Computed example of a mutant assay.
Amino acid sequence: MRITPLVALLLSVLAATPARAVLHITRDHGGYVEEYKAKYKQIRERRERVVIDGICNSACTLVFGIVPLNKICVTPRASIGFHQAYYDKAFTFGIKVTSLEGTSDLMSYYPDTVKDWIRRNGGLTTEMKKIKNGVDLWKIVDPCPEEW
C-alpha cells in the first residue's frame, strides 16, 4: 500500500490526538463489588482512561484502587461517596446489614490517599461520606485537563 501525503497527515493527527476516556462516569451509585472489580480490572489491563464527571458512589469508588491513578481524572462536577459495605438487601429482608469482611475488602483496594481521607473523616460508616471536586479530592486524583 502506498502512503500518500494526505494519508500520512491523517495518521500523524490520529497518533497525536490524546485518547479519550473509555469510561466516563456521570451518575454511578454503585452496585455489586465483584462486578466493579471485574470492570475496572479490564480497564486497567487495557490501559484505558477514566473520567469522573459526576457521581461515583459506593462500589464505583473501587476505581481508585484498581485503575492506576494517572489514568483517572475528575471534572468540576465530580462527587465521590464512600460508606461501609453491606449485604444485598434482597437477602436481608430489606434491612441494610453491614459487612465487616466486605468493608475490609473495600479498604484493602484503596490507595493510601483514599484511606487517609476516610480516616480523617471518621472512617467508613453506614452513612455516605462525600468528597466534592476540590482540594481534598485533588489530593487523591488529578483534575481533568481543560478539554473536559
Rank of each mutant, 00 (worst) to 15 (best):
Ile66Leu: 07
Val50Met: 08
Asn57His: 14
Arg120Ala: 12
Arg20Pro: 03
Gly30Lys: 03
Val7Met: 04
Cys60Gly: 10
Glu101Thr: 10
Ile118Pro: 12
Gly81Asn: 07
His29Tyr: 13
Leu23Ile: 10
Cys56His: 05
Asp28Lys: 04
Asn70Ala: 00
Thr113Ile: 04
Thr113Ser: 15
Leu9Ser: 10
Thr98Leu: 04
Ile55Gly: 01
Pro5Thr: 06
Gly94Ile: 06
Ile66Gly: 05
Val97Gln: 12
Ile43Tyr: 04
Phe93Ile: 00
Gly94Lys: 10
His24Lys: 11
Gly54Glu: 14
Arg49Leu: 15
Trp117Ile: 00
Arg20Gln: 12
Gly30Trp: 01
Ser79Pro: 04
Ala15Met: 14
Thr17Glu: 08
Arg47Ala: 11
Ile118Ser: 03
Arg20Asn: 12
Arg27Ser: 03
Ile118Asn: 05
Gly81Met: 09
Leu69Asp: 04
Lys39Glu: 08
Lys89Arg: 13
Lys37Thr: 15
Lys115Cys: 11
Leu14Lys: 03
Lys39Asp: 01
Gly65Asn: 13
Phe91Val: 11
Ile118Arg: 07
Arg49Ser: 09
Gly31Asn: 04
Phe91Met: 11
Ile95Gly: 00
Ala90Val: 07
Lys37Val: 15
Gln84Arg: 15
Ser104Trp: 10
Phe93Val: 09
Ala90Asn: 07
Leu106Gly: 02
Glu48Cys: 08
Val67Ile: 14
Gly54Asn: 06
Thr113Cys: 08
Thr92Val: 12
Gly102Pro: 09
Tyr36Arg: 13
Val97His: 12
Val51Asp: 01
Pro18Gly: 00
Ser79Met: 13
Gly54Gln: 13
Asp112Ile: 08
Thr4Ile: 00
Tyr32Lys: 14
Val97Ala: 11
Leu69Trp: 06
Phe82Gly: 05
Glu35Ile: 06
Cys60Thr: 08
Val7Ile: 09
Ile55Met: 12
Ile66Thr: 04
Ala59Val: 02
Arg46Met: 14
Pro76Trp: 07
